[in-house]
Design a protein around this nucleic acid. Sequence first.
DNA 1: CTGTTAGCGCCTTCAT
DNA 2: ATGAAGGCGCTAACAG
Lengths: 372, 372
Amino acid sequence: MATTSGPPTRHPTGATIYSVAERAGVSIASVSRVLQGSQAVSEKTRTRVLQAAEELRYVPLAAARSLAVRQHEAHGLVLPELSGPYYSELLMGFESRAAELGQSVVLMLAQGKQDVPRAVRRLATRVDGIAMLGSSAIPDETVTALGGSKPVVLIAGDETPAADTVRAENSSSAREVTAHVIDHGRTRLLFAGDPSAGPDIRDRYAGFVAAHEEAGRKALPPVPVALREDDGTALADRLLSGELDADALVCANDELALAVMVRLREGGLVVPDDVAVVGWDDVMTARYVVPGLTTVRQPVRELGARAADLLHERITGSAVPRSAQVIPTHLVIRSSCGCAPAPPTLPAPRARPRRTQPDSPSPRTRRKRETR
Amino acid sequence: MATTSGPPTRHPTGATIYSVAERAGVSIASVSRVLQGSQAVSEKTRTRVLQAAEELRYVPLAAARSLAVRQHEAHGLVLPELSGPYYSELLMGFESRAAELGQSVVLMLAQGKQDVPRAVRRLATRVDGIAMLGSSAIPDETVTALGGSKPVVLIAGDETPAADTVRAENSSSAREVTAHVIDHGRTRLLFAGDPSAGPDIRDRYAGFVAAHEEAGRKALPPVPVALREDDGTALADRLLSGELDADALVCANDELALAVMVRLREGGLVVPDDVAVVGWDDVMTARYVVPGLTTVRQPVRELGARAADLLHERITGSAVPRSAQVIPTHLVIRSSCGCAPAPPTLPAPRARPRRTQPDSPSPRTRRKRETR
DNA sequence: CTGTTAGCGCCTTCAT
DNA sequence: ATGAAGGCGCTAACAG
């Protein structure tokens, strides 16, 4: 640990609007006006103020402004954690939109906090409203209590009268992947994921069941596992040992699906021939693994943006009706489902960073064939 | 887009310390005392205050407190964006540590902002100090100006008298991977990455050069490409077309390395036989791809935590000396470097979420053999 | 142990 | 176009 010493650089007790006013030879009102651009000011005082502020390295104190305008101009966001692309994308969408709305974002991660409700209350202290993931392990009562004092939007959470809600479409895409797998002739499908873990997975299982009904069959009960790699490995082991039997697995997310695929292969089974596997999220690895993982892509960025929007509407708009918005998803077909792998086409380089783009207005699932 | 209407739920102009005091029949000072636990209070008034606060759904106004205590009790963090595991891990480490220190974190993503310096100034307005990624596209002058008014810590950035600095070890691990590849008998090594893009990559290339010198050879000049999948695909194409020649590639990150591997395979070359490939970061895909990608893992979480720590020290401690901290890394050897793939050992399920753990004190690179 | 009272820095009428 | 002055909600002496 190298340590280069240097001048202890004082961080001066910042200049205030008063010192700026004084130096510029005007009143604080004028300073405020030019800095906020809230009212016409003569060109002369304008430049003098600007220069004084510059020279003094004036940094306004948001706290003082907030107190005066009675607005924090900040949105709170509560996420469980940040591993995997899901939360990151959500956060990017949220931050981006919030910034466009002139709002700062104060982030809180629930994982690791010993007293989450307390942390949330503390957060509520410095923001105008809070968006949180439904599965952030926040007690319902905390949410309700919060909803009573500040606007709250739940992302992928259960509908509640205390908050607005945004979520991605789940059941119909689940129905679609499941039907797709059934079309491949599979008959013993298993759903991996715990429907009681939240509305997302619950709805996915519902779609799984619906697809079976449409095919005149009966869906097997869900295999309630968590969604991490370990759980996938363990699940595969249960398949390999014969404890579980299936010729197709509909996994509630990609991490799970990928871990299952790898372990099955290690155990001597081949995907998709012996057992087809599909997932959810379309993580980067889904494209790299062989065979490519068929999965459902959610417009997570868009989801985050909508959350920020809704929050803002609720904060500013006086009496918007409670809304539960649903955002459409894509089915991404590769070959782990049983489809023949696309020939190596040496495709053009992948598109650059995907900006959030307006999705088709209908919440219907879209479909897309991809190489590899 | 379903819209369930409901009661327009008023968000009352929150209760204040005055209303609570009144309802509890005490002075505002007492309310403050019990809520802050700053001073002894009789059990009687204590409970009365607590109850009044509860009934009124009292949510203190951080802005008012901040103004009074002259502290935001919040750390700012500026990141370029959030794709890939690097930034997320960093953010998790930062948030976690900041929370332990009782600081909120205000996040700003540079990507997509049209006026980043402005956004940073705005951020500076509501936090006690700012940590930012060296490569966040923040003009040097902005950093210096900021450093003049608030504590700033640069993460993986160039050392500057205006800020503290934290970074992961780079050159010696680069020297080590490079030497490892040379030991495999490779002679035409290429470094993929742009050393001018920042100190991280610059140091990695320096290590690459050092390893060559130690082996009594001369390193080829770097191939200055960016670090995304596209760039990797394009790079592989240059190899396939013969424009570039190499039997080993040291890539500045995994995204690049993985894209290269896939494209090379599509083009008929085999990794590592025809060309060895190593990367940096140890992303999830590195374990899933075949052959497993040999790479350098950085304790990114720890990096974020250190940044939060340093920032806090600088904010509270009166005159800490400027420091440039370096955090050690791991070399993770799989088989893309030419090592024989480990036999499928059906290993025990992977360890659960890795909490930040104390690293060995020495900044020396550690080494580790992994299956697959 | 409790109440009173100055500010904290900025915004915003209200006059001028 | 500009200045004066009150107030935003909370903390922290300072008296009692």
